[in-house]
Nucleic acid binder design. Sequence first.
DNA 1: GTCTATATGGAGATAGAC
DNA 2: GTCTATCTCCATATAGAC
Lengths: 210, 210
Amino acid sequence: MVKVHQSSENLDSTEQRIYIAAVDVFLEKGYDGARMQEIADRAGINKALLHYYYRSKEQLFKRFFADTVSAMFENISMVFTAQLPFEEKLRRFSEAYISFLIQRPGLPLFLLTEIRLHPQLIENTMNDLKLKSRFTMMKLLIHEAIEKDEIETGSALHLMIHIVSMLIFPIVGKSMIMMLLDLTNEQYAAIIEERKSVVPEFVLKTVKKS
Amino acid sequence: MVKVHQSSENLDSTEQRIYIAAVDVFLEKGYDGARMQEIADRAGINKALLHYYYRSKEQLFKRFFADTVSAMFENISMVFTAQLPFEEKLRRFSEAYISFLIQRPGLPLFLLTEIRLHPQLIENTMNDLKLKSRFTMMKLLIHEAIEKDEIETGSALHLMIHIVSMLIFPIVGKSMIMMLLDLTNEQYAAIIEERKSVVPEFVLKTVKKS
DNA sequence: GTCTATATGGAGATAGAC
DNA sequence: GTCTATCTCCATATAGAC
């Protein structure tokens, strides 16, 4: 869930409603395309009140962005704490990650786009959250597995990129894939669901020692 | 190369300079972030002249977008005409596709983003270009290989998605990957270069009949 | 074809009453 | 806290001289 910066007040408070509306609009339209008027409309209030709670569009965006990135990576790292063989970790990771993305299909493309378009807007956020150290866990996991002779791979780095790419890209490229392969929304959803198991099995075929 | 809508005039013409500037700005800032003033400045002319050649921002964008999508998919389909075994086609495709993307690193993320943000702006474009039929070639290629017993795979559809994901995502997710893995620009470039061969070899390990 | 000047509208942000 | 009204700026687009 996306956390909210707020001192534990009523969930139905105005501030909360504004925040929720802002999340929707920013995700749909991006920073440049988002309109304060639309956020106000969806929250059922007016622009003035919006500025009363969040001084500016920039501040509102920054709060939302920090929360969102944080949620995204919290979710990833959970899988790695368990003590399990590489195979099982990979299966659980794929399952958990795709499940997470299914619920927030617009998130990865949004993040990638905003990082590119507004690096200065998000710089502080990225430094605050210790993302690097979190992600390093995945690298360590794979190195560990290699040392334990569980897997065989030319490059742990490339293997990581393979896995992440196969999990995230189909979500990011939804519009393109649907168009090119002539899929309905239902077919597309089914394919994504399948990938929870297809991707780890595909990877394991390649790297498992026999 | 990105084609230009223009009746074969001087390459240094004003219209041409505007178009080139527009390509740069749109790719950098996206449709919403692009400013006509900036395009005019980079072209070394003023806004009025810009509107003289291209009536509106929307029209300018549409022309550029159509050209760009076209170029992107022209390039893909070239590989499939040759009569070669699946293995060799896959290697050539990976090489050609990554080479293409290295020269236009911002392109895939731009396309994916604009398709999502402005579907109505690009609808005509997508219908005009017979993208679907072009991409179907890749599906056919894989089915053909399966029938010829060249490869073994659970699902041709997923295999296609695997390949495309592993090729495109590292380009799309450059900012994220660089940040998370703590890479310099040089290291990142080297990794992308490596993927020209790493990806097809990875895939072949899984699907090659032995 | 190219310019300066300006029209027009929309966006973020604030003032000030209640 | 919440509203209406308004300010200010900036972006697209056009008018009209040269």
